[in-house]
Structures are given as C-alpha cells and as structure tokens.
Design a protein around this nucleic acid. Structure first.
Lengths: 343, 343
DNA sequence: TTGAAAGCGCTAACAT
DNA sequence: ATGTTAGCGCTTTCAA
C-alpha cells in the first residue's frame, strides 16, 4: 500500500511539513533549493498526496457528481462524456450514478453527493418529481446544474442554473418546413407532455399553426409515454383513420422505428405517401433508406455547456455566473419529406 | 451549506461524540435511550455525516474508479451501467474517466484513482500499453479488475484479476456453423490482431479449420485497424478477386456496415450470393433486412461480473477471491447465412 | 454502557 | 523563507 505521507517526505528532505506542503502545491514562499530537495525526496519515495486528507482540510473534493436516468442510453452517455472531458481538464473527476428514473433513488443520490462533499453536481432529472430537492440544494449553496428542465414556478433563489435545448424553435422550424411543403395534417408523436422537451415542442408546433392561421384541429397531436410498442399500433390507427395525416413527426429512435414499420405494413412509401420527420438525429434516421429528415441538437454541447456553467460556480464567481445556456436545434434536410400526394 | 457536524448532534442530544458516532453506525454498545435520542437529534438538525472525514479515518472512500476508452460508446456505457448498478447496491459510487484511448491519460487516471484513495478500480484498457501499470497496481495491493485483457506473460503476482469473454469459443461456433453450411472460403474482417479479443477470434477461426482438416489457405484472414472506411473498400477488393469468399465474418457495427454496403454495390444478395455473420449483436445486425446472424455476448454480464470480482477483493477475502470470470458467447441464428451458391 | 483523547494526512494561520 | 501549531469531522482505542 501507499504509506508514504508528507511527513516522510519532510523527514527525508530534512525539512518541515509546511515547507514540503508549500513546495508541493504551487509553491509560494519557497526557495529554489527547498523546492528542488522536496521534489527529489518525493520522487525518490514515490510520494503521492492523499486527496482525502487534503479535501478534508480544504473543504473541496475535486469531484463532481453526475445524475443520469440511464447511462447506457447513448444520448446520456454522450452528454456525460463531453461533460467529463471538460471537467477533467479543469481537474475534476466525475462520479456517475444512474437512477433508473426512480425519483427516490435520484433524490438519495443527490443527497449522498452532498454528504460525500462533492463540489457540485450535474443533474439530468428523469421526471419533475424532485424539483423541490433541486431548489433545496441550490438554496443550500450546492453548485447544481440541471439539464433541460425549466422551473415552472418560483423565482430568484428558487430557480436553478440550467442547460436548455431550444426544442420549441426546433419544432417550429420542422412544422414550418412541413407546412411549406403543403402539409396541413401533421401528426406529432411525442413522449410525456409534462416534461420540458415535449412541452416545448408541442407549444412550438401549435404556435406555428396559429401563426400561419391554419386550423390546428386538422393536426393530429398524439401524446403517449410507452414509445416503441405504442408507436407502431397507434400509427397504424392514425394512418387508417379518415383525414389521416400526410406527415408524421416522431420523437426518438423507438417511436421512429414504430412509425416506419407501420408505414411499411400499410404499403405506404416514404416520402411519396407519407412524410416522416425525426425529432433527434439518431443512427436509424441517418442510415435508413430513405434517409430521414431530422431535428438535431448537439449532445456534446449540452455536456460541455453544463460543465462550463458548473465550473463558473465552482470558481466562485457565483454572482457573475451565467444562469442558463440555450442551445440551438437544427433541421437536417434529408429524403423523407415531400409535398403531400393530392387526395 | 451543511455545517452540522457530529459535534452539534452530540451537544443537542446532551451526549458525547463517541456515543453519537456509535449510535449512528451499526450501534454496538448503545442503550436504546441513547440511540433514540441521537437519531432524534440528528433528524431534527438535518445532520448528514461527512464521508470525507470518515474516509480519512477509516482509510476507505466508498468509491471505485472506472477507466474506459470512451463512455459514449454504447458498448462501454452498457458495461459501466451494469457495474455501477451492482457497486451502488454494495454502497459504492463510481468515478468514471474516459481516456480517449490515450495510454498516458489512462495511466495518469489510474494513478490519480490511487491518489484519491478510491477503494478499487475497473479498467477496460484501450491498448496493451499499460500492462506494466496494471501489474504495479496489483502488486501494490490496489484492487483492480481488468476487462477482456489477458496478461500475455508473467504469473502469480504478475497476473491480474480479469473478466474475460470467450471470443475463441464464439469464433469457433461461428466458423463451424459456416463450414457446416458448406462454406470453405470464409473471410474474417476484424480489428487490431494484437489485442485479446481479436487474437482469440483469429485463433478460434484457425483451430476449427485445422480441426476439420480444411486447408486454411482458402480462408481469407483480413486484419485492419480503421474499421468502416477500410471495410467497404477492402470488402469490394476481396469480393472481386479470384476465389472470393462465400461468407464474411465482420466485427462490429462499422465493419458490418461497410461489408453490407459493398455487397449492395456489387449487386450481391445476402444470403444468396454471400453469407454475412456479425461479431457483436448490434442494432444494425438486428434491424437490417435480412436480419444478420451474429455472435452475441452480454455486456451487462461483463459489468456485473467485473463489479462482483472487485467486491470480493474489497470485502477482503482476497485469498478466496475468484481471479477471473469467463463469459460465454452465443451464436444468434438469423437470416444472413445460407449454403454457398455452387460456383 | 459511556466519555475523553488521540490521530487519519493534510493545509493554513501564525510566529520566527 | 521556514518552522510550529492548530485543526478539518470523524472513528476508535482506552479508561472509567
């Protein structure tokens, strides 16, 4: 084991503890000779500082917690990866916990982060269940950055620093594009309407219809929580009904897969008989034939921005610190959308 | 901030520090009354123990490091997720570092893990460059578990605990299957031959040929490091040459994609004109038409087994601790392999 | 069963 | 510029 302490180094170098400590950390008030001797002794003994003891003393652990619903989800993994890279640059290590979307575990992990004296945390909440916890933490002085969740209420100390994706603008761009192609009956298949991303998308979708003076009654707004299985059956139902949509906007890989399968089942050709637009630029969208037009936002940017926001706080310029980042969504044009067939 | 210490609780409860400490941890030698009072006081004050201080005292941090080349790779992410789940059950938190396949960063991170006094580490090496480091750590008493890397040399203290996937058996099953279908000219497109997984696959491939008394000269063994781009061009070349293989075994999503594209370019129908077998059961293999027969191993099991091996050491039964786990590889039969066309 | 006291390894006043 | 000393919050002997 590593039993070499700073004491041993001091003894070996024939110096005092504090001189060694000073020499080892940025070394202010250290003569060249002492610095040299200390480094030599430390190297010779293979000394490695004990971060734990240092942390106890300095009240900073050099670690940041990261709370994700499921890190095996590539979307989350990419965000975590980017955040980790940026934080490591700044000297922090990342402690990752997957909550499996269980609010109780989510809260418990956040509190444990605090107990372990992590310097801050990045949280991608699986639901809105723990809003109160985030507020408490923020109010309690913990450096927290929340991913893509807007506080619905509250202000000032009740708000939290957040990285937000501009899903609304994305949805508007997609909707305008489809309407511009001539579509009037557009179905939006999304997930849980209560959470920020879907909420914003639905709002954007509606805004454009209103803006264009089109009766939104003609649009199909389909909201459901169990993506894949639902999507297939439900899409079949929607497409068979009277006034079936001529375009479908589908959230994520799983719903998209369901939609594509349903179209195939009905013998509908994309984009001739049905236009399809993916919310989220997944592998499936890019690789599928025809390639699927998609809304894309940068997961790396989310991770980086989150790390950056957190670092600002960690550096102590809390007053100066930016409170939120809003990231853009792009429409990637491919081959899955076309003017609707005349009906 | 959280400024409530165990001292405050003791004072509030009118007891001594040590009594409170005892009451709070498993409570041996504590009267019921004291236990009750302590818990009450702790709750009332919202006391949360300081893991840092505790760790300094107990010499255990309750944290485990995890070294991965790239956590945004879904394969790695799945392994990490499974390991994290198991370790959290046991009360540990996971510190994750992506090394980006840079051996220097890999080594630095491992040493920093030790400096931070993490209780152990899980390492999925990006190369064999740091073998020496792993040996040093193991010899130095650090609890380390290595993923899918076999020490080529050394024994006893020079070996490390590892979770191994039985790639050799998998390759043998695949090769036997293809030979059984009548194939004699089979190309194996794999990655870096120096690392354990590919090395084992190649060995298994050759073993079966030898076993069956088939001249392996007829087989094409193609080894290359830059998967996707290489795979497409190289597959084209292979398939156009005299004595082209009637079956191709492709490693991973990217090579598989290149192979399928090449087959399409040449107007070859799978499996009529060419049998294709994927090493690794990726989304692409499962979703493709025709669905691709694949070798599959459980990433979750890797993560779980790694965590389990590490926990055994962490619990101190080092002597008893299992040294390695060997996980099976299954052949998932789908629609991409058939007897070769007569030529 | 309880309390007093030592000390984990380090940093940061403070004194020299 | 260097050394001495006092803790950080906790666990854990050791006495009582």
């Amino acid at each position: 084991m590593n039993v070499i302490t700073i004491r041993d180094v001091a003894q070996a170098a024939g110096l005092s503890l504090s001189s060694v400590s000073r020499a080892l950390n940025g070394g202010k008030n250290v003569s060249a000779r002492v610095a040299r001797d200390v480094v030599a002794a430390a190297d010779r003994l293979g000394y490695q500082p004990d971060f734990l003891a240092r942390s106890l003393r300095t009240r900073t652990s050099g670690m940041v917690g990261c709370l994700v619903s499921d890190i095996s989800n590539p979307l989350n993994a990419t965000i975590v990866q980017a955040a980790e890279a940026r934080l490591r640059e700044a000297g922090y290590m990342l402690v990752v916990v997957s909550t499996g979307n269980d609010p109780a575990r989510e809260r418990a992990a956040a509190l444990e982060f605090r107990g372990r004296r992590l310097d801050g945390m990045l949280v991608s909440p699986g639901s809105d269940a723990n809003e109160k916890t985030w507020r408490e933490l923020v109010a309690g002085g913990t450096a927290v950055v929340i991913l893509d969740r807007d506080p619905l209420e509250g202000d000032g100390d009740n708000r939290w620093p957040a990285v937000l994706v501009d899903h609304r603008a994305g949805a508007k761009a997609a909707t305008r594009y489809l309407i511009g192609l001539g579509h009037r009956r557009i179905a939006l298949l999304t997930a849980d309407e209560r959470m920020r991303p879907s909420r914003e998308r639905i709002a954007g979708f509606r805004e454009v219809f209103a803006e264009m003076g089109i009766d939104p009654a003609g649009a199909r707004l389909c909201i459901q929580a169990s993506p894949m299985d639902f999507a297939h059956g439900h899409t079949l139902a929607i497409l068979r009904a009277d006034g079936a949509p001529t375009a479908i906007v589908a959230l994520g890989t799983r719903i998209l897969a369901g939609v594509l399968r349903a179209a195939r089942d009905l013998g509908l050709s994309v984009p001739r008989d049905l236009s399809v637009l993916s919310v989220g630029d997944t592998d499936l969208a890019a690789v599928h034939t025809p390639a699927i037009t998609a809304l894309r936002w940068s997961l790396e940017d989310i991770g980086r921005a989150a790390a950056e926001l957190l670092l600002q706080r960690l550096r102590g310029d809390v007053g100066q610190a930016q409170h939120r980042a809003l990231l853009p969504v792009d429409l990637v044009l491919r081959d899955s959308c076309a003017p609707p067939a005349r009906s």
